[in-house]
Design a protein around this nucleic acid. Sequence first.
DNA 1: CGTTTAATTGACATTATTCAACCCGGGTGG
DNA 2: CCACCCGGGTTGAATAATGTCAATTAAACG
Lengths: 246, 246
Amino acid sequence: MSRTDSSLEKAAEHLRHKMASSMGSLGDALVRDIKTLARDRTDFSAGRPIIKEHDRCPQIYLIESGWVFRSRGLASGRRQIVNYALPGDILCADSMLFKQSSFDLTARTAVSVVRIEAPQGAELFERYPGLAAALAWTMGQEESILAERVVSLGRRDSLEKLAHALCELEARLGAIGQMRGRTIELPLNQEDFADILGISVIHVNRTFRRLSDDKIAEYKKGQIELLDRERLAELAAFDPSYLHFD
Amino acid sequence: MSRTDSSLEKAAEHLRHKMASSMGSLGDALVRDIKTLARDRTDFSAGRPIIKEHDRCPQIYLIESGWVFRSRGLASGRRQIVNYALPGDILCADSMLFKQSSFDLTARTAVSVVRIEAPQGAELFERYPGLAAALAWTMGQEESILAERVVSLGRRDSLEKLAHALCELEARLGAIGQMRGRTIELPLNQEDFADILGISVIHVNRTFRRLSDDKIAEYKKGQIELLDRERLAELAAFDPSYLHFD
DNA sequence: CGTTTAATTGACATTATTCAACCCGGGTGG
DNA sequence: CCACCCGGGTTGAATAATGTCAATTAAACG
């Protein structure tokens, strides 16, 4: 099997697996639709912008590999990462609705995406109900994740924010088979955490230190060791239902 | 014309008007679809819960009148308002995707909603393309608003947060014809602002005071006077494109 | 009028940011 | 091989932003 087929299939499987509970019999249709509509692959090297704010995002992409940030840079130099997308996630799901993107998309690692040539409107739903359902599900889940992040940023202190983010990372990576036992492997440095959590780099460092002093989790370059998931989830008051994995 | 017809029509018009630029010819179809599928009306008095976290939200509702909060209460007693919905907005747009809501919906004022009996899946798109487009647009716009709120909560200070929220309120209320000149009429007290902005009530008060000292905006019970929109927008670095009104 | 709810103010505590310095491991060029 | 440099990471001290507590005022309502 060529690289093309197998990595595409893996991404489609990730997507199917995440949505399993909501999809019912449409799971097979989804995989079939994606294989049918997949077009060219594009690779981005780490750090490269994929879409800039106010750009038109003309197509839907499925991530085969790599991490993508959706972020906004403010005039003052501050940055907020709104979202991160993983293999099996769909990019630009709203491209058919809106003229332009309000955020930047950036490849955090080397990223490989496949363009999906989806028809518009009713034809999408008639001919490719699996993909249509996946698109709707993606938008709904993204919204739900954003709503949860609003709660974190608005009403949790730095320790709770970090703990919650780690729980979410574990759940999302677990859903695509990227957890190795109790360690999270990720391409995020402390500055990335700062821009996800909305706090300063230095405070991220201090907060990780607290987690590690309490033997709850340990930050290392490129990975995080979860020493005590139970207390971590408790700290965060983590309820994974907002991810809708079931 | 009965109250039923006219207020339903007004809500449908609001929705159509907001989406005008994206809808093209589907605008008329939307109004027709809503009239066809509108079922019973429900009224909630101010303060009443509409949906509680973990409830099943079985139907789509169109708001005819009133303000609805989507919020999460934390164990510690803190509350974060994630979203607010206005006349012409759709509630539970994701009800067909997910088993349960991850947030509370609460009537902030007296609220009147109409249940829309939408069919599932492909039938929705074939027979009611106007409504289908409106649902998709609603989910996309909600996501975009949430993303912008993440930026506010994460990387703007209290003055910028408040200024941005006021700009957004003006834009959203303007889109449904609820601005009277330069005053915003709204049912939010300072505690509501606190729970929207993720800061303390007292700090909301201090921040309004700063705006009023600088003759930019003035808080009064039930309304906010915008004295200098230009400087307000500048403070917030407000770019309305994320609302996708065009 | 009294009662209630929301707004306001000041004093103080806590949290997080900023600034400055230092460390550490991994290149890189001499 | 070594010296240096560079991007993170780590730490402490000073400062700024925001939260908490307590008390007061104002408006709203029967």
